[in-house]
Nucleic acid binder design. Sequence first.
DNA 1: TATCACTCTTGTATGCCATTCAAGATTGAC
DNA 2: GTCAATCTTGAATGGCATACAAGAGTGATA
Lengths: 183, 183
Amino acid sequence: MAKNKRDIDLDVKRKELEQAAARLFMARGYDATSMGSIAKELGVTANTLYWYYASKDELLVGVLNRLLSDSLEKLPAMMELSLRDQIDWTLRELEKSRPLVNTVHGKLGESAAIRDWHDRFHSLLESAVAHTLKAKGIRGERARMLATVAIFLVEGLLAHPHTETQRDDILAWFSQNSAADPA
Amino acid sequence: MAKNKRDIDLDVKRKELEQAAARLFMARGYDATSMGSIAKELGVTANTLYWYYASKDELLVGVLNRLLSDSLEKLPAMMELSLRDQIDWTLRELEKSRPLVNTVHGKLGESAAIRDWHDRFHSLLESAVAHTLKAKGIRGERARMLATVAIFLVEGLLAHPHTETQRDDILAWFSQNSAADPA
DNA sequence: TATCACTCTTGTATGCCATTCAAGATTGAC
DNA sequence: GTCAATCTTGAATGGCATACAAGAGTGATA
């Protein structure tokens, strides 16, 4: 079972690395965080990181996937909320990683690895929101359009500072206007 | 008039530098474009750029301001369009510089100079949209909220690939639901 | 015309960074 | 106790933004 033990260690180490990386990326920003400074957190050399990840971008993807899967565990409970509360929940969840969200968007043009992750994440979110809308009786095409809008609103609120009131107003307005098409 | 002649040269050179920088930033991305490669376009050394700009970020701000003031010249004509067409126009105008928009959002957390520019740009856009909405008879507070939403939609469409149909649907939906409050 | 101050440009250098490579160290399997 | 796979490291490479001080060009002044 040697193989197995190694595999376990691998995941443990990856987890530690990704947690350290997440902390530093969020505190200082992605570009301002060197591979060396992440490695130092665990008392290893920068080179060591390259045994676990092919590049700094891949490490970021690892961090993102870990955060995502943590959030995904709470998804079933979340799906029982109202649409409005689902959006609010998503927003608060993403706010915990706000700096990373901006980093991802900034790197879309330069890193295929990050773009891939981003695209898959978007599909996931859109599917979830569209599913809820369809459950409310909204036809598929319109549900998808509204899901896209919902995500744009989440991203906008995430990227730009705003008051609680602003957020509430926007979410209330969206909920009200995302009912079935009056036409 | 020596002073004057110099000042003119300064602006000419800045313009050339900013045009070269804009081209490279958009083609290869901000991080992937070195100061040296920009300088080489004009046959000078990287150091030379530092006489005109305090840093690479400041050069980016220069590029942004130049693009912005170019667009701003067309603003009066634009203000006579319908709200829907105003948003569409803004979107198409920003699409010309799509890579830079993403760069700016990615750097918000790390560069005060860029954050300042971004905040001022947002105020400008929001004021313009809110002004149009108020002219349609929507009360101030609601107009500001809808202006914020409009900008979030523009940014969302800008950052994420989409079809013409998707865009049309979203803009149509927004126009329809940004009328005076039914309540 | 000679000098001066200001504007612009460059050569050279520093320090940081991501990433590579080859060589050690560790450890389970046989 | 040897072997192979799994980790870790030291040392090096090349690129980068940026700093500094020295030079070249140019208009104004005397």
